[in-house]
Amino acid sequence: MIGLISYLVFFTTVATILSIAVLGLNLQWGNTGLFNGGVAAFFGAGAYGTLILGGTPQEGHIGGFALPYPVALAGGMAAAGLLAWLVGRLTLKLRHDYLAIATFGVAVTFENVMRNAEWLSGGARGLRGFDRPLQELFASPLAYNAVFLGFVVVLLVATYAFLQRLVASPFGRLLRAIREDEEAAQSLGKSPARVRLISFVTGSVIMGLAGGLYGTFYAFVSPQDVLPILTFQIWAMLIVGGAGNNRGAILGAFLIWGAWTASGWALSRYAPVEAQIYAGSIQYVLIGSVIVGMLLWRPQGLFPERLVVSQRGRHPVPAAAE
């Protein structure tokens, strides 16, 4: 029973953290129409940033600044934002292909640098020496994990509330306007490149937050955590949930993460031993099929974006009729 509960806590924590990353992607893709092929890099920048800033000194690489946890987490988010700003500044003025290629390239390069730059990231062995904040206050790991789950849920709710307000605000209307008809927005004196950059950086900072929490939860991060498959998983979550709908994004995250862990468990349990090394390939084919299948048969996702009328006509609908 305790085993089941601690597994549920573990599962929900990871799914909640991934939901935050999906919300960040939803701002970029769902609300602004920006294609981010390198979610793993921005997630990773948050994780590595947080652990380098908040960790204890280690031999062989920089870091271990042992900064207070909120500062370290904010630093990780800032690292993700900075990376997004660098890429976005160069590509957001160009055709959308360039952003797709450049962001994918960032993810490849980020993983490659983290794997090789031992002085920075500990290399392929990963980054250790991070003490989870306030851990000494809790007697059992389960109690700590339960409280940590509460913490990430609060951050998920805060991110959700922030994005809901953002999307409903005049800025959110501007994002949708640019997504739907860039030239029309431009004719009204708006600067699409600037607005896109703001949205891209904000979404990436949110992914950085998710990465920072992920690193905190495991107190460890390695290049294995920032492989391109993470990007594909997070996309599948968004597209299953329904791009443009924040609630759908969160539900999609739980659904896909559940399907991913369940398929992994089923393969490890029921697949013959000699087929075990192919379990990863089978899961990748499944994720790819989910993405392609959804795009072909239900591109609006399970929970489509609800289109809103920003300004009603001069005669508002009577309250009784609503």
Partner: peptide, 23 residues
């Protein structure tokens, strides 16, 4: 008429083709 969805789909196709070859 969804150009961006094609980019998206191409990632899915790449994932499927690459891993089917591996299998």
């Amino acid at each position: 008429g969804e150009e961006l969805s094609m980019v998206f789909a191409s990632f899915g196709v790449a994932l499927i083709v690459r891993n089917l070859i591996g299998l």
